[in-house]
Design a protein around this nucleic acid. Sequence first.
DNA 1: TCGCAATGCGGAACCGGTTCCATAGGACAA
DNA 2: TTGTCCTATGGAACCGGTTCCGCATTGCGA
Lengths: 344, 344
Amino acid sequence: MSAIADVARLAGVSKSTASRALSGNGYVSRETRARVEHAAAGIGYVPSSIASSLATGLTRNVGVVIPFVNRWFFSEVLEGIESALIPAGYDLTLYRLHADAVGRQRVFDYFLARKRVDAVIAVGISLSPHEVRSLNALGKPIVGIGGDIPEISTLSIDDAAASRFLTEHLVSLGHTRIMHLGGDQHEQMDFAVHAQRLAGVRQALATAGLSHRDDFRAVPYSIPGGYAGGLAVLSDPSTRPTAIVAGCDEIAIGVILAARQLGIAVPEQLSIVGIDGHTLAEMFGLTTLEQHPSIQGERAVKLILERLEPRAGAIANERIGIPVDFVVRRSTTAPPGADRFARS
Amino acid sequence: MSAIADVARLAGVSKSTASRALSGNGYVSRETRARVEHAAAGIGYVPSSIASSLATGLTRNVGVVIPFVNRWFFSEVLEGIESALIPAGYDLTLYRLHADAVGRQRVFDYFLARKRVDAVIAVGISLSPHEVRSLNALGKPIVGIGGDIPEISTLSIDDAAASRFLTEHLVSLGHTRIMHLGGDQHEQMDFAVHAQRLAGVRQALATAGLSHRDDFRAVPYSIPGGYAGGLAVLSDPSTRPTAIVAGCDEIAIGVILAARQLGIAVPEQLSIVGIDGHTLAEMFGLTTLEQHPSIQGERAVKLILERLEPRAGAIANERIGIPVDFVVRRSTTAPPGADRFARS
DNA sequence: TCGCAATGCGGAACCGGTTCCATAGGACAA
DNA sequence: TTGTCCTATGGAACCGGTTCCGCATTGCGA
């Protein structure tokens, strides 16, 4: 016997009236509602969300597809999504999706399509046209974070513009030997983040007439990655750059540690900029471009919720830029030997 | 019309036969099964997990209650849980649960109790007896990670033993001025992790006859926390300890950075040990006790899955210890001035 | 050859809610 | 006074699967 039927019987009303009283939909007299609520409280009634989902077609659950949970950017995004979703009364179901195709197919067909979720937020993962179509066919809103996905709305910073801006900043300080330590072009996630950031650096260098070979070194996207790469790049004083644009703050911090290790003063002998706004950036005095991933998560949720509104019509699928904050700390200055006030 | 009914009609069988054919339960002839499968593939049939859950009472979904997703220990545990749960065919629904009582009550009543999950894994959160009882009443297995919860099985390292062991290690190296930089005793999570770790240090000091006031300083559980605490503790050479037991690796790394900042050589002038096995420990040459949080997550899942087996009987609710690995790196040695081989 | 078990399948109940439809009383305008 | 609308409620269908029960075959041992 369904639990709500127990409540109904106890309150002396029909199942339908009990449902209306508890859900607040439809006409129920004040007094009847009170009786039903009292009966429900009396037997500790807890509605079954499963049954409710089956009847209404709404799960009040959002699927989050994400490649990592233990990396800074992704865990920050996740925490932003979570903190926006729960107050709205939604559950969050987590699907870790790697690049590998089989697990991917599996997660996709086996989990996402099974009507378990009302909407999907894809973080740092590009969906194939087929995947997008099949979700669209189910009428489920999708929002992407971290890159462009055709036919759906995506939130991201402009990676090329970001690294271009940072490079220009270094150029404006007077640097002429600028190098990029960024992610491996082949190992990047589905989105071309690494390529974009490299391209931005190169654009700025070209514009300034400072292009040179040896302007890039691929390193793992982590503090140890930046450290090892930093040691390799900085150890030869004759080829050492005077400024480094790191692909992310973690790499930048690794480079700072490598510089310290080698006795290279930052920023006097080496300027370093990062991208991210990592938790540790302040402690290391890192000049960086903050991209506030948790806010990206919150905004994605807002977008999703708008689309979930019953009255939501067709919505333009746009690429939405995320504002960034340039935070100048103590890791950048004019290059050694330059007139410090040359272009300030 | 239910989707499976379409499949059935297309295959020329009844709904029940179609269900049996697709789920593999009950008797279906080889040939009928093939017809049904073909029909299902033809119309792209995807079963509704909601309907299935309602009928069977099983959601194939596990709720994970966790206070943070963007801190190292927790994100590692989460990733361990995820990677064990998905291959077993379960979804993972994430509930972030803070210490604050209202949000807590809300998450608990509103989400967990609603029959959305088959089981619960609580990470770093102690549940009140009332909460445990209400989950038990629903017949849902619960496993805790990170501390002791009465009446349910919990997985954790022995925090007191861990810090006692590390302190004994420093004592055996000849250190006599040993200090603990750990978490604030008031701000700790529900589990008394901070208190346990402090207690372990004090036990070892007492046993060695090295007790002293000023044996502890509370710092935030983070690299910046350890850094700031390290600067404060190390800046006065006259009171400076020769060895520090950090409450976690992040604090230890912060202390290492503070020591570098102050020109104190590690390990020659200062030995430092941590607890965790943090990703960055190796890079900083940190001697630490690894606790493998992702393995804790995997083991919790294994426990949960055992309890979810239909034939699972009453299971002892035990406190399960997690093995730790002591990894000696370059942050510990004998104290300055001591005969290095005194007690090796 | 008979009886019983194993197999194959359809009908219908069921999981626990939501909602459509019908009914009925009361208020209010015509 | 009659018709219409709003309120309040019950009955029943429905969401989309699963499973119990019953019936019909078939196979095999006695």
